[in-house]
């Protein structure tokens, strides 16, 4: 099937559960297993939490959430117009956190990577960050 949605919300922590619920409802159209759906939901939660915690240090900004279904593959993109990531490779290292004082575990990107087929991260300092999560459902894996 083909489908898409595009929305934005204020980057406040209350909206983390909103982003998960929307992603779940959208991806559920592909009839994933409980495990597949909870993996995608967890990955989205990590991406959205990163945008809320790290992108806007002074006041909450806008977080974009969009989704696309192509065949049995779902693409979820989380965007922000925040401060950007200066070193993406470092940010993706397991256990690295830019905010050690806030009890962040540093596992966000590791979880996104292990729960999705692949992730794409683009960022520009002062302009923002875009994270795309790609996950195929069902036994016939692979993007179509």
């Amino acid at each position: 099937m083909e489908n898409r949605f595009d929305m934005e919300f204020i980057g406040i922590s209350e909206n983390e559960s909103l982003a998960r619920a929307i992603t779940s409802a959208f991806a559920a159209m592909l009839d994933p297993t409980v495990e597949e759906l909870s993996e995608l939901k967890t990955a989205v939660s990590e991406a959205v939490t990163n945008a809320i915690v790290h992108a806007y240090p002074y006041e909450p900004g806008t977080v974009g959430l969009s989704g696309k279904i192509n065949g049995n593959t779902v693409y979820i993109t989380v965007t922000d117009s925040g401060i950007g990531i200066s070193d993406i490779d470092k940010a993706r290292e397991p256990l690295y956190t830019g905010k050690p004082e806030e009890e962040r575990s540093g596992l966000g990107f590791s979880i996104m990577e292990s729960f999705c087929d692949r992730i794409e991260v683009m960022s520009a300092l002062g302009e923002g960050t875009m994270v795309t999560l790609v996950k195929s459902f069902g036994s016939l894996k692979g993007e179509s």
């Binding site: 998960r20 909870s38 939901k41 967890t42 939660s45 990590e46 939490t49 806030e102 009890e103 962040r104 575990s105 540093g106 596992l107 966000g108 979880i111």
Partner: peptide, 13 residues
């Protein structure tokens, strides 16, 4: 019913 890495940070703390 759900936990992400923020829960890990909370437990570790």
């Amino acid at each position: 019913t759900f936990m992400d890495s923020s829960g890990i940070g909370m437990i570790m703390g």
